[in-house]
């Protein structure tokens, strides 16, 4: 069984070591993980397997005990075997949407609502504010039947309504400019 664990805490050295130790001492193994830090706050999502199938509460308790009391917010769920690994099928295409402009409330809400209404999934999202300028980069999984011309037009229009410039581009563009692998032979 696969356990999905998330941990959130104020960042300090040793959090990952603690989580790793707790999983290791329970006989578990980490299958996949991703960690990030925003404004000094650490968050991690881990997929782990355990041979003896502990309860979620046991896993949660073991990880919490590696921090000071109340320091780590831990949540644990068991992944059902029939749950798909991706929210969208492999036939979906991958685009990057980038927005620049003055920070205003509601930008993410309205952009994400538009994307959701078209069945577009956000697979990665990053945003930061610097000198009052907001930059958001979204990786999108786009249904193949949607016309990129229309999406580009709509997203640019929507961005403009918030005073932001929006750029909607296929991810291969960025792979081409920053990845040394040959374009002629994908996977090399």
């Amino acid at each position: 069984m696969e356990y999905i664990v998330t941990v959130m805490a104020h960042d300090r050295p040793g959090i990952v070591a603690g989580i790793g130790r707790a999983i290791y001492e329970m006989g578990g193994n980490v299958e996949e993980l991703s960690q990030t830090v925003v404004r000094g706050y650490f968050t991690i999502i881990v997929c782990a397997t355990f041979p003896h199938s502990p309860s979620c509460e046991e896993v949660k308790g073991a990880i919490e005990s590696t921090g000071a009391p109340g320091e780590l917010d831990v949540a644990v769920r068991i992944r059902k075997p029939d749950e798909p690994l991706s929210a969208t099928p492999p036939s979906y295409d991958h685009f990057i949407l980038t927005l620049f402009g003055r920070d205003r409330p509601g930008v993410i809400y309205h952009m994400a609502s538009y994307l959701a209404s078209h069945g577009i999934n956000i697979t990665d999202l990053y945003g930061r504010t610097s000198d009052g300028e907001f930059t958001i980069v979204l990786e999108l999984s786009v249904p193949p039947e949607l016309d990129p011309r229309k999406l580009k037009h709509d997203l640019e229009e929507l961005g403009r309504s918030f005073g932001m410039s929006a750029h909607f581009q296929h991810e291969n563009l960025f792979r081409a400019t920053h990845d040394l692998r040959s374009l002629a032979m994908p996977g090399v």
Binding site: I96, T98, D124, Y126, T135, V137, E139, S165, H167, Q169, E171, L173, F174, R175, T177, H178
Partner: peptide, 16 residues
């Protein structure tokens, strides 16, 4: 996963 800085550098090339 493409790095955010790489994305921004490519966009700067095209738009600025």
């Amino acid at each position: 996963m493409v790095r955010t800085e790489d994305i921004l550098a490519t966009i700067r090339m095209i738009h600025e």
